Computed example of a mutant assay.
Amino acid sequence: MVAGLEDLRALCGRDGDHRRGWAFVRAMTEAYGYPLADGDGVDEAVLRSTEDRLGVPLPAALREAYLLFGNRRDLTATQDWLVPPQSLEVGAGGVLVFRRENQNCAVWGVPENALGQDDPPAVLDAGDGWVPYTDRLSVALVEMVMSEAMFSGYEDHVDNRELDGATLAALEAGFEPLPLPVLPFWAGMEGPGVRWLSGPDVLLRDDGGEWLWVHGRTPEAVQAVRDRLPGDWLMVPDD
């Protein structure tokens, strides 16, 4: 059972409540060894100053994310990075950029005309212009935390490998899809997207049917995935 799964389902449902997303983040980070604590969020005064500078309120979902975990680099800036409030800007394309790929190969944002919504859509630009990313910003932010927590995971709690047809079929047969939508894969926009799956004490991310990441609550859980999906895993511990 995935920690906080019912909250994730509620977030991703038709009438999703972004506050259920934060409940999932709390449960997931606790289960995987990165519990949230007081002081992990950005100070309210910083957000007010940012809103004064921009001339518009931030969407509630983005505000709440900053207040809850905005100072936790292990959850927001291990691989790609959540833009600090002080650096938020509406660009020439009329989009407020809230996240950047670590080499600026892709950026995530919210259209300026949607900033008045509590949980507006998020969009992605991987070099060819803005395209839809998620129907709700909160879903993009929750997925961000899942990815960044995985990349910051203890060495023996994570692994990754290339996917081939046989392994992809075994992955689909042996693991359960999470209720997150399939997201555009910025490094392969023309192909399959990014999807998340789960197994006993593990979360798995399939990047476009090309690469697989696994994040386990324990080293044993990661090894169980290796055993079930044998192949050239990159983080196999030395004997």
Results as ranks from 00 to 15, higher is better:
residue 1 M to F: 07
residue 6 E to L: 11
residue 10 A to L: 10
residue 10 A to P: 04
residue 12 C to H: 11
residue 16 G to C: 07
residue 18 H to F: 15
residue 18 H to Q: 12
residue 19 R to W: 10
residue 20 R to G: 06
residue 24 F to A: 06
residue 27 A to D: 05
residue 28 M to S: 04
residue 29 T to H: 11
residue 31 A to R: 14
residue 35 P to Y: 14
residue 37 A to M: 13
residue 43 D to G: 09
residue 45 A to I: 07
residue 47 L to K: 05
residue 50 T to Q: 11
residue 56 V to R: 15
residue 59 P to E: 06
residue 60 A to D: 12
residue 65 A to V: 07
residue 69 F to Q: 03
residue 71 N to V: 11
residue 80 D to V: 05
residue 82 L to Y: 09
residue 83 V to Q: 05
residue 85 P to K: 14
residue 85 P to E: 15
residue 87 S to D: 14
residue 92 A to N: 06
residue 96 L to C: 12
residue 98 F to K: 09
residue 101 E to D: 03
residue 106 A to C: 06
residue 110 V to H: 02
residue 113 N to E: 15
residue 115 L to V: 09
residue 115 L to I: 11
residue 120 P to N: 14
residue 141 L to C: 09
residue 141 L to K: 08
residue 143 E to N: 14
residue 148 E to W: 07
residue 149 A to F: 10
residue 150 M to K: 09
residue 151 F to R: 09
residue 153 G to S: 13
residue 156 D to P: 02
residue 159 D to T: 03
residue 161 R to K: 06
residue 161 R to V: 04
residue 162 E to T: 01
residue 163 L to E: 06
residue 166 A to Q: 00
residue 167 T to W: 00
residue 168 L to I: 01
residue 168 L to K: 02
residue 170 A to I: 00
residue 170 A to S: 02
residue 174 G to C: 01
residue 175 F to S: 04
residue 176 E to D: 13
residue 177 P to F: 04
residue 178 L to Y: 08
residue 178 L to W: 07
residue 186 W to L: 01
residue 187 A to S: 06
residue 187 A to I: 06
residue 190 E to S: 09
residue 192 P to V: 05
residue 194 V to N: 12
residue 194 V to D: 09
residue 195 R to V: 03
residue 197 L to N: 08
residue 198 S to W: 06
residue 198 S to I: 07
residue 200 P to K: 11
residue 204 L to C: 12
residue 205 R to H: 04
residue 207 D to E: 14
residue 209 G to S: 10
residue 210 E to F: 07
residue 211 W to Y: 13
residue 211 W to M: 03
residue 217 R to H: 08
residue 217 R to E: 12
residue 220 E to Y: 06
residue 222 V to N: 01
residue 223 Q to T: 03
residue 225 V to H: 07
residue 227 D to V: 00
residue 229 L to C: 02
residue 229 L to S: 02
residue 229 L to K: 01
residue 231 G to N: 00
residue 234 L to P: 02
residue 235 M to Y: 02
residue 239 D to F: 00
